[in-house]
Design a protein around this nucleic acid. Structure first.
Lengths: 151, 151
DNA sequence: TATTGTTATACTCTATAACTATA
DNA sequence: TATAGTTATAGAGTATAACAATA
């Protein structure tokens, strides 16, 4: 008798990846028209509302390595959306912050995020959306992911 | 008054990405111990139970381009998990199929998928898991993603 | 000409590890 | 020696576009 292999689609993880990839790609297309990527938006959004943050903080909050942050920051600096400054008190430390241009840009990008959200989940009832949000939030917490930006 | 920018975490898409990335990475680590990647597993699973499929079919079912399928298939062929054969009736066409080694490997990888599933969603009640599955399935259908392997 | 695949190229995302400059 | 960041390197994942062979 042949071994039973469940359908790939029977796995929550698989469906999750399908939906997540689609939502992210749809968002990426919208952001591309503005010249930024999803990861770049993530860094900008994390920086928004704060004066300045060291790369190590960004790495922690975004769940990335410091090397990855450096690379991401380099691109944003090249676009004049972020600036890098040496810390006055610690010669090793650097800080990153949004430029005026970057700061003004965030609300526009946030609007695209909202729009994407609306388009991708329009078919869900308010109840379903609430339940989904709760389940995802619980999962983020349970899996120990950095969900809430530490402040 | 400063423009209102919703928290990044307030977006379902963001949470979805967090959870999906975590689940996929956890699965990737398990698969890595067996020498395959998540995308490679996806191709093997799509091939499983079928005699042979042309790259174009794989591309459609997996939502990838033909070029991407070629590259993925090359890696699997190098691992002797998949074989490529010219079609007898159409000189342009190729077909891909699992080797005996690849076929025997699938159930073991499927077990890892189950294990990963259990670990990542263990904290959810049966009811929540059911609801999540329903919501994701509805979303896959609504967004027109290739959810169910066409047969 | 249209189609099937492959190849070439490129870019994002991310990690690991080596390295530099401080502390 | 330990820490903050950067740089170098690498590989997965994926796309686009050019190309070859065949229809």
């Amino acid at each position: 008798m042949a071994p039973v292999v469940p359908e790939l689609t029977a796995h929550l993880g698989y469906r999750l990846r399908q939906v997540s990839n689609h939502v992210s790609h749809a968002f990426a297309r919208k952001l591309a028209a503005q010249g930024v990527t999803v990861a770049e938006w993530g860094l900008m959004r994390t920086l928004y509302g704060k004066e300045r943050l060291p790369p190590s903080r960004l790495a922690d909050e975004m769940g990335m390595t410091r090397g990855a942050i450096t690379k991401l920051a380099d691109r944003l600096i090249a676009k004049a959306l972020v600036s890098r400054e040496a810390s006055p008190d610690d010669g090793r430390a650097q800080t990153l912050r949004l430029t005026a241009k970057g700061t003004h840009f965030v609300p526009r990008l946030a609007a695209l995020a909202d729009q994407n959200e609306a388009e991708c989940f329009a078919h869900l009832s308010v109840r379903d959306r609430t339940v989904l949000a709760r389940i995802l939030t619980e999962t983020v917490e349970r899996l120990g992911l950095t969900g809430v930006p530490v402040d």
